[in-house]
Write a protein that binds this DNA or RNA. Structure first.
Length: 404
DNA sequence: CTCGGCATCCTAT
DNA sequence: CTAACGATAGGATGCCGAG
């Protein structure tokens, strides 16, 4: 088996870079990347968090995921811009379409990351590092934002490499570099080793990725499940056989959640939200021509604890009213009336064939519902997603001023 | 003992 | 002083009860 060659390309501070580029294109003179700034939720809302920060913002100690309110305390001059996903999708498409020219085997890993299988191209491109520079410079020159490229023999190491020094850099992490470049890093830096795993590992005196790489596997098995233990051990040693795959897989679940501005205790208000959410989820199921067997309600009480309650149904559905009724029933069963800060709805156990079978049953009532739902879908596609929701859901805008 | 169903935990962007 | 705190999705894990 011949060695593979894998690139991982990651947009530096993606959302923020894209906002910066867009604003420059629209005649603004300030480049958001050069000042403390971030993409985040409305600073007036208690629940908004920092999504992406500029490098100058990082210097103030502002972290991704922290509340915008505390970020503003650290840096009162912080510029907070609201996310614009339309723009990000467009930028993402352009970014990926450039990279697409370089390989037939590319995997979109997220809106701003791709894996590229560059194996067997040494004839066309004898120097992978030079090629990576070419790619990243082209993106920078043509699209106006920078990327990091990680080069390795597998996806894991390519991903780890692209995370080294930023921005606008190319890094390699070949097998003979793993001990030098990866092992000194704290365990938490390992892809797949999050907060909780890192804490457990540190308690076992495994502080660096190197410590983990050399740890006794039986010790890991005593602290983690079988899969996690073996993943951690392999990953720390730079071992990963997962292939670059280009087909996008079908969704396994469709979910919506809403954090409310004020805690909710009113049953009617909860139902209202559930209806809006059922409508969104059902619309997405229909758009994908699938149905779901399992409906789950999710709620977060004011003590930040998440709860969920779900049930598998006899028949799969994509009908708003059915999903709504189920959600209300589940909520009624599980919720004891504590103040809620988040209410969500998820449809899973996806039935791919269900959509086709629909007409075989000829259930008139369902047909009617379907037509109604279709009509709503049409309104949505014409006027945007908000138009249907607006009628019913004031909560989303509660506390905002100057709105109609 | 295995499998499905369910709740929760963990991780990632 | 500490905790504060989104949306969405996939996978792991543990438990329980049925067969």
């Amino acid at each position: 088996m011949s060695d593979r060659l894998i690139f991982h390309v990651d947009v530096n501070s993606a959302f923020l870079s894209w906002e910066a580029v867009d604003r420059l294109c629209n005649g603004e003179t300030l480049d958001l990347r050069t000042v403390p700034s971030c993409v985040g939720g409305d600073p007036e809302r208690r629940t908004s968090i920092v999504s992406t920060k500029s490098i100058p913002a990082k210097k103030y100690g502002i972290e991704t995921g922290e509340p915008v309110a505390t970020a503003l305390r650290k840096c009162p001059d912080l510029i907070v811009v609201k996310p614009n996903f339309q723009l990000y999708k467009k930028m993402s498409r352009e970014f990926k379409s450039i990279l697409d020219e370089y390989t037939p085997l590319m995997q979109s890993f997220s809106i701003d990351e791709v894996f590229m299988d560059m194996s067997g191209m040494e004839r066309l491109h004898p120097d992978p590092i030079k090629l990576a520079h070419e790619m990243k410079d082209r993106i920078r020159d043509e699209l106006g934002f920078t990327v990091n490229v990680g080069i390795a023999r597998n996806k894991l190491c390519a991903k780890m490499a692209s995370d080294f020094e930023k921005p606008d850099k190319v890094h390699t992490l070949f097998p003979d570099e793993i001990a030098d470049k990866m092992w000194p890093l704290p365990v938490g830096e390992l892809f797949g080793c999050g907060k909780s795993t890192a804490k457990k590992l540190r308690e076992m005196h495994l502080n660096t990725i190197g410590d983990l790489a050399e740890a006794d596997e039986r010790m890991l098995l005593s602290a983690f499940g079988e899969k996690t233990a073996s993943y951690l051990h392999n990953a720390a040693n730079g071992i990963d056989d997962s292939p670059v795959v280009n087909e996008e897989r079908e969704a396994k679940s469709y979910s919506v959640e809403n954090t409310t501005e004020d805690d909710v205790t009113d049953f009617e208000e909860v139902n209202h939200l559930l209806l809006a959410e059922a409508d969104i989820v059902a619309g997405r199921l229909r758009a994908d021509e699938v149905k779901a067997f399992t409906i789950t309600v999710i709620y977060r009480t004011s003590d930040m604890k998440r709860h969920s309650h779900g049930k598998k149904m006899e028949n799969s559905t994509d009908i708003t009213s059915e999903i709504y009724d189920m959600a209300v029933k589940l909520m009624k069963e599980a919720w004891k009336g504590e103040p809620l800060r988040l209410i969500g709805l998820s449809a899973s156990d996806i039935d791919k064939d269900g959509f086709q079978q629909m007409s075989l049953f000829g259930e008139e009532e369902k047909e009617k519902q379907k037509n109604l739902d279709k009509a709503l879908d049409k309104i949505r596609s014409k006027y945007g997603n908000d138009s249907v929701m607006r009628a019913g859901v004031g909560v989303f805008r509660a506390g905002r001023k100057g709105n109609e």
